[in-house]
Amino acid sequence: MSYKNKGGGGLKELLNPVPKQAAELLLQVGALGALGAVVAASPVFPSITEGLVHMQIPGLFKVIICIALLTGASGSGPAGLNATLPYLSESFAQMGINMNALHRVAVFSSQTLDTLPTNPGFAVATSVTDVPMNKSYKYVFITTVLNTTITSFVVAIILTVLPFLA
């Protein structure tokens, strides 16, 4: 669909689907955010998080792993944060993790496993763009999973070695 400058008719045609697309996006984001609460309410959540919290690794690495895994399980960064922070922030604080550092690392790690092939957003994007998943995922993986995971660990290392930066 292209914009035609003929009395605004082209613009009207261009903008016509926007309200429907915006409503769909809002519903999807809301549903994914709520999914975090569902994941956290599952019967296995306490045992999984207990195991993750007691690993013998630096505290900020625990934050990355917890949030990344719950983001991957729920399919969304906001859902991963919603499933992790309300339930584990006190445990992280008791470990001596600075809350500013927790915030920074949490934001980065919520973007790590949010675009797995099962992610609804990725599926919608491939559908809308008419690009097959098997042709596009390697690029999505490099840019949205690998790069963000590396960056999360770099931020955690910096804030562990130089905690005054938090």
Results as ranks from 00 to 15, higher is better:
residue 1 M to V: 07
residue 3 Y to D: 12
residue 4 K to C: 03
residue 4 K to P: 01
residue 5 N to T: 04
residue 7 G to F: 12
residue 7 G to T: 05
residue 7 G to K: 06
residue 8 G to C: 01
residue 9 G to V: 09
residue 10 G to T: 02
residue 11 L to K: 01
residue 11 L to Y: 11
residue 12 K to V: 14
residue 12 K to D: 09
residue 13 E to M: 02
residue 13 E to Y: 03
residue 14 L to A: 12
residue 15 L to P: 02
residue 16 N to I: 02
residue 18 V to C: 05
residue 19 P to D: 07
residue 20 K to G: 05
residue 20 K to T: 11
residue 21 Q to E: 11
residue 21 Q to N: 10
residue 23 A to V: 14
residue 23 A to K: 12
residue 28 Q to G: 04
residue 29 V to E: 03
residue 31 A to G: 09
residue 33 G to Q: 00
residue 33 G to S: 08
residue 35 L to V: 06
residue 37 A to N: 11
residue 38 V to E: 05
residue 43 P to S: 14
residue 43 P to Q: 12
residue 44 V to F: 15
residue 49 T to F: 05
residue 49 T to N: 12
residue 51 G to S: 13
residue 51 G to L: 00
residue 53 V to A: 09
residue 57 I to E: 13
residue 57 I to C: 10
residue 57 I to P: 12
residue 58 P to Y: 03
residue 58 P to F: 02
residue 60 L to T: 09
residue 62 K to F: 03
residue 63 V to R: 07
residue 63 V to C: 08
residue 63 V to K: 04
residue 64 I to D: 12
residue 65 I to H: 03
residue 66 C to Y: 03
residue 66 C to V: 13
residue 71 T to R: 12
residue 73 A to T: 11
residue 73 A to V: 09
residue 74 S to W: 00
residue 75 G to M: 01
residue 75 G to Y: 03
residue 75 G to T: 04
residue 76 S to N: 03
residue 78 P to G: 04
residue 79 A to D: 06
residue 79 A to L: 01
residue 79 A to V: 03
residue 80 G to F: 00
residue 80 G to C: 08
residue 80 G to S: 10
residue 82 N to E: 06
residue 83 A to S: 14
residue 86 P to Y: 02
residue 86 P to W: 01
residue 87 Y to A: 13
residue 88 L to C: 05
residue 88 L to E: 12
residue 89 S to T: 06
residue 89 S to I: 00
residue 91 S to E: 13
residue 91 S to L: 01
residue 93 A to T: 07
residue 94 Q to P: 04
residue 94 Q to H: 12
residue 96 G to S: 01
residue 97 I to C: 00
residue 97 I to T: 03
residue 98 N to H: 06
residue 98 N to A: 08
residue 100 N to Y: 11
residue 102 L to Y: 10
residue 102 L to V: 02
residue 102 L to C: 05
residue 103 H to A: 13
residue 104 R to T: 07
residue 104 R to M: 15
residue 105 V to D: 14
residue 109 S to E: 10
residue 110 S to H: 05
residue 111 Q to Y: 06
residue 111 Q to F: 01
residue 111 Q to L: 14
residue 112 T to E: 05
residue 113 L to R: 07
residue 113 L to C: 07
residue 114 D to H: 02
residue 114 D to G: 10
residue 115 T to V: 10
residue 118 T to K: 04
residue 118 T to D: 05
residue 120 P to F: 06
residue 120 P to E: 03
residue 121 G to K: 00
residue 122 F to N: 11
residue 123 A to N: 14
residue 124 V to L: 11
residue 125 A to N: 07
residue 125 A to Y: 09
residue 128 V to D: 06
residue 128 V to P: 03
residue 130 D to K: 15
residue 132 P to W: 03
residue 133 M to H: 05
residue 134 N to M: 14
residue 134 N to E: 15
residue 137 Y to P: 11
residue 140 V to G: 15
residue 140 V to Q: 09
residue 141 F to V: 10
residue 144 T to L: 14
residue 146 L to R: 06
residue 146 L to Q: 07
residue 147 N to W: 14
residue 149 T to K: 06
residue 149 T to H: 04
residue 150 I to Y: 08
residue 150 I to R: 08
residue 151 T to R: 07
residue 154 V to I: 15
residue 155 V to E: 13
residue 156 A to W: 04
residue 157 I to K: 11
residue 158 I to E: 10
residue 159 L to P: 08
residue 160 T to S: 14
residue 160 T to L: 09
residue 162 L to I: 15
residue 162 L to E: 08
residue 163 P to I: 05
residue 164 F to L: 03
residue 164 F to A: 15
residue 166 A to Q: 05
